[in-house]
Write a protein that binds this DNA or RNA. Structure first.
Lengths: 173, 173
DNA sequence: GGGTACATGTAATCAGTTACATGATTTA
DNA sequence: TAAATCATGTAACTGATTACATGTACCC
């Protein structure tokens, strides 16, 4: 029909969040994003406010505006939106991201590993603690299989980073 | 002095590549990028052609244009460019990147792990083979410590991904 | 001399970033 | 009631993506 409007990761984050709630205001989307997906894929609030309108223009969500007072916008998935989300979830051809790790860029171009390592270690250790705390909280709740799996991935990779930077920190020139 | 023009990762990739060569044409930058940094941080060639001019405008590189024939541009670091590169390399406060892994986004929003896993496995196994081949070639050459370290990181993380997706593929519902 | 790979850009579009701004509620 | 903090946007700018376009050199 329409030449498919390109859906970005941000689009799918909004669609996915709307898939959990029946209806949501931008603020609820923002709140739902923070502390969940936001832990491994942040989106600035300006985007979270802008994206639903793009999706509405493309027919993937509906907007209901409050009459009185605050005139908030409430968004909900349309059939097309649900379909786009489901197709994306089912699509088996997902290209893995590149590493794109700034600290690696520095190593590549000759930075002293011992200079880079401490900062990385601290950041990754803090991140690991956060992930494990979140995981402990999620553990018992039902319906959190997806988030738990992503946390597992985050935890494992973070541990690899910690081991990596510990090694480089120890190999002082 | 000047309100510091913001240098992006792309800027540092160009600066870093110019730091290896005394002088380079955009094509040489492109070639130098492909198969090295390009393995974990790709930059489209349109950017590799555009970025040096931005850097020139900011005083970090000089441009020398060929008189005859092809009138190619040759770029070289200025003092300021070398300083910016060195300061970036020495700066210990590097914020680690987010995971931003599309496949994780899908898991988070409820995709069937068994549906996602095969494609991820194949992609990561291929990637691992590439990395190990490059590493084997680099191993003997002198002056490749930086690239070897980044490859090590890539290899370790790719192995973690493979183990992760193998586990999810095995846990068929 | 015709094709194919190499080499070198430009143009259009747009999502993402950053900053600005302000209204509504709660709390001290 | 003054101050935070919660909630909700808008505006400006620009790097990144994608596509278009063309020139040059080498090879069969």
């Amino acid at each position: 029909m329409s030449s498919d409007p390109v859906l970005t990761p941000t689009s799918y984050i909004v669609l996915g969040l709307l898939g959990f709630a029946d209806e949501a205001t931008p603020y609820e989307l923002k709140a739902g994003h923070a502390g969940s997906v936001g832990n491994f894929w942040s989106v600035p609030h300006s985007q979270i406010y802008a994206e639903p309108d793009r999706l509405a223009a493309a027919g993937y969500v509906t907007v209901r505006r409050e009459e009185g007072g605050r005139r908030r916008k409430h968004y909900a998935l349309t059939e097309a939106g649900r379909r786009a989300l489901d197709e994306w979830l089912a699509d088996p051809t997902t290209v893995p991201a590149e590493m794109r790790e700034p600290a690696l860029l520095k190593l590549f171009f000759g930075a002293d590993p011992a200079a880079v390592a401490p900062g990385q270690l601290e950041a990754h250790r803090r991140r690991l603690a956060e992930y494990e705390e979140i995981r402990a909280n999620l553990r018992q709740q039902p319906g959190t299989e997806g988030p738990v799996l992503t946390l597992d991935a985050g935890i494992e990779h973070t541990k690899v980073w910690i081991a990596y930077w510990e090694r480089l920190a120890a190999e002082g020139g």
